[in-house]
């Protein structure tokens, strides 16, 4: 069988640079959801630490680094972004590598762009580096994380990749137009 050509979720759509913000796609080797069974939370967190160097994140937080991150994605569940995981005893795990469109929005205008789309308080005092949220971008459910002073990671369902880029592009243009 011949080699198939894998296309990323935002293939042909990114990168974009408009005004003070850039939007790029992030492609992870693997995305795995990890949901510890009741009573196994600590053991699963320890196993994650030894496999990918980051603990199981608390609600509304992410742990780890750029190529190896764990982000809280709902009650009792985290998404591990980066290295493929070996099965962990005491956790329900699902491969979601091709299920998400992941983008990074960065630059001095990044927060102004997001503020037009996301209904949470993005100010420094309440959404800091290492913070994460399940929230909405326009009407679309997303995972949002702040990964730097001017850098945000956004994950939406892959089938919504075009909408995600469109909404962000429109907001980037609007912020840039204000100068």
């Amino acid at each position: 069988m011949g080699d198939l050509i894998a296309k990323s979720a935002c293939d042909g759509l990114l990168p974009l640079e408009i005004g003070g913000a850039t939007l790029t796609e992030i492609v992870f080797d693997a995305i795995t959801s990890v949901a510890p069974w009741r009573g196994h939370e600590q053991a699963v967190s320890d196993a994650l630490k030894s496999q990918m160097g980051a603990a199981f994140p608390a609600p509304n937080r992410s742990t780890g680094k750029a190529k190896s991150r764990a982000v809280w994605s709902g009650r009792g569940q985290a998404l591990v972004l980066g290295p493929p995981l070996e099965p962990i005893a005491g956790a329900a795990m699902t491969d979601q590598t091709d299920a998400w469109a992941c983008v990074a929005l960065e630059g001095p205008a990044a927060r102004d762009v997001l503020a037009r789309l996301v209904p949470i308080d993005l100010r420094d005092g309440s959404f800091k580096r290492g913070h994460a949220a399940r929230t909405q971008l326009m009407h679309m459910s997303i995972v949002l994380m702040r990964t730097g002073a001017d850098r945000y990671g956004i994950m939406a369902l892959r089938s919504m990749a075009g909408t995600l880029v469109h909404d962000l592009e429109t907001a980037m243009e609007a912020v840039a137009a204000r100068g």
Binding site: P59, N60, R75, P119, I120, D121, A133, R134, T135, Q136
Partner: peptide, 11 residues
Amino acid sequence: PICGERDSREF
């Protein structure tokens, strides 16, 4: 109780 104060459109 988990996410803190949020806009009603999320609910």
